Computed example of a mutant assay.
Amino acid sequence: MPWTAFSSSSNCPRIDVAVDMGNPFLNRTVDGFLKIGAVAASRVAAEETFHFLQKGTVSGVYVGVEYGMERVRGTKDWKNAMLGGAVTGLLISVTSNNNKEKVFKDAITAGAVATAAEFINYLT
């Protein structure tokens, strides 16, 4: 029969789950399975949070560079998106330790994607 208990410790919460299968070996197996599942779920949550923040960082760099281009050039047009995308692709590729050819491909690709997105925004 399952039961749950929360400890009153201020350091970290603790959840104990006991399932009585009628056999000590099965009880330990189920207990181990539940603990490993909790660790795996925690790991996935941490990795997904990291990837989310990493994508947000790229977006933040792009928005900042595009806004900087707008301020420097004194106009708001598709060229800001192109330059912002190219500079962002360049920065991300350089920090990823890519070779020289890959850095330029990433810059050109990011600039093209940003420009296409800007044109699509103008159409809608």
Rank of each mutant, 00 (worst) to 15 (best):
V87M: 10
T88F: 09
S93T: 11
M69L: 12
A86V: 08
T75E: 12
V72P: 05
G85R: 00
N80Y: 04
K79L: 14
G84Y: 01
A81N: 10
S59W: 06
T75W: 06
G84A: 05
N97L: 15
V61G: 00
G64M: 03
S59A: 05
V61A: 07
N99E: 11
N99A: 08
M69G: 11
L91W: 09
M82A: 15
M82N: 06
R71C: 13
N98K: 13
M69F: 09
L83V: 11
L83T: 11
G64K: 04
E70D: 10
V72Y: 09
I92D: 01
G84N: 04
G74F: 14
M69N: 11
K79W: 11
E70W: 02
G64V: 04
G60K: 06
N98V: 07
S59I: 04
V65C: 02
S93V: 11
G64D: 08
A86H: 08
G60E: 02
E66G: 05
I92M: 12
S59D: 08
R71D: 15
N97W: 15
A81I: 01
K76C: 13
V65E: 00
K79C: 06
G68C: 13
A81W: 00
N97V: 15
V94K: 07
V65F: 04
S59H: 08
K76R: 13
G60W: 08
M69H: 03
K76L: 13
G84W: 00
A81F: 02
R71K: 15
A81E: 01
